[in-house]
Measured scan of single mutants.
Amino acid sequence: MSIQHFRVALIPFFAAFCLPVFAHPETLVKVKDAEDQLGARVGYIELDLNSGKILESFRPEERFPMMSTFKVLLCGAVLSRVDAGQEQLGRRIHYSQNDLVEYSPVTEKHLTDGMTVRELCSAAITMSDNTAANLLLTTIGGPKELTAFLHNMGDHVTRLDRWEPELNEAIPNDERDTTMPAAMATTLRKLLTGELLTLASRQQLIDWMEADKVAGPLLRSALPAGWFIADKSGAGERGSRGIIAALGPDGKPSRIVVIYTTGSQATMDERNRQIAEIGASLIKHW
């Protein structure tokens, strides 16, 4: 067993022997301040990774656009098919120029040779490549099948209805392509620590998230040296922004954090800054 596999296998073990965790309302004060600064709703939840206990939450059962955070769930569904012998990570998928959609920095470079399922998941999570996500959605049967996968996990809230990039439209009061912070946090925890996926697939999923290259201005910008984070960000229309993450000190994750916002007129930089400040408060009061 590799060191990384050992780390993920012992996530519940280490967490069980940690000192009790206590909620700190100071972080919620910052979440509410972010709402004021952005002029928009902000949803927040913080779960203990081992027990699933909610440590703090704000608007945990209000719907927010998922945006690209759905790509972690998508690759979880792909990995479940791999575990069941219905898919192979090494299978190569070929596609054409007509398949390319807006923001496809990886797939646009491989029109000639195609990409493997493993490479597509890596591109979808680490670079948020939209064509990679659409190609992977095709392998599982489309958005409705991802929703069905989530329902089978016990998540009857999260739903995907459309493809990239239309799913980022974020129309107010439109339930399409949305989740709730509580539902997303619980589902992410199941994917990373539950028995739904094999140990190898859980490790692969967290490795992809740990290698995320496009979430630097968010929670990662607030992390002290030595902290662990595996995350996936999302951005959408109407001032929408979000991030889902597993993080913790001492090089291992111990909490799940989900943050979503929508309806702001603020710039992307300002949305990023507010999420980073929430992260800084979380870490300060850990």
Rank of each mutant, 00 (worst) to 15 (best):
Q265N: 10
R176V: 06
R41C: 07
H24W: 09
W208E: 03
S233T: 13
T126F: 03
I278G: 00
S221D: 09
K284A: 13
V29A: 14
L223F: 05
L167Q: 04
M67S: 09
I171A: 15
A77V: 11
F13G: 07
G154N: 07
T186F: 15
I243E: 03
T107I: 05
F22C: 13
R91C: 04
S104Y: 03
I125M: 11
R176K: 15
L196K: 15
Q37L: 13
E46I: 07
S57L: 09
K71R: 01
S57Y: 11
A170P: 08
S2L: 15
S80M: 12
D250I: 10
K284G: 12
R176H: 10
L120K: 00
R189S: 13
G154M: 06
L136E: 01
A133L: 00
A225N: 15
G114L: 04
L111W: 09
D250W: 10
N50K: 12
E108L: 09
I11Q: 05
D250N: 15
P143A: 07
V8E: 10
A183L: 07
D48L: 04
D36A: 15
P165K: 08
M66A: 07
R91I: 04
K30G: 05
G90D: 14
A15C: 15
E166R: 11
G76N: 01
E56G: 12
I206M: 14
V8P: 11
Y103Q: 04
Q265L: 14
L74P: 01
L137W: 03
S201W: 03
V106D: 07
W227F: 08
A280T: 11
G216E: 07
L89Y: 07
R118P: 04
Q265E: 15
E164G: 00
E102S: 13
A235C: 04
T179K: 00
D212M: 03
L146I: 09
A200P: 13
S221G: 10
P20M: 04
H110K: 13
T139L: 15
L205C: 03
A9T: 15
H24D: 13
Y260P: 00
T147E: 09
I243R: 00
P20T: 06
Q203N: 13
L89T: 06
A84F: 09
E62R: 06
R238E: 08
D99I: 09
I171P: 07
L79S: 03
G236W: 01
I229F: 04
G76F: 05
T138F: 10
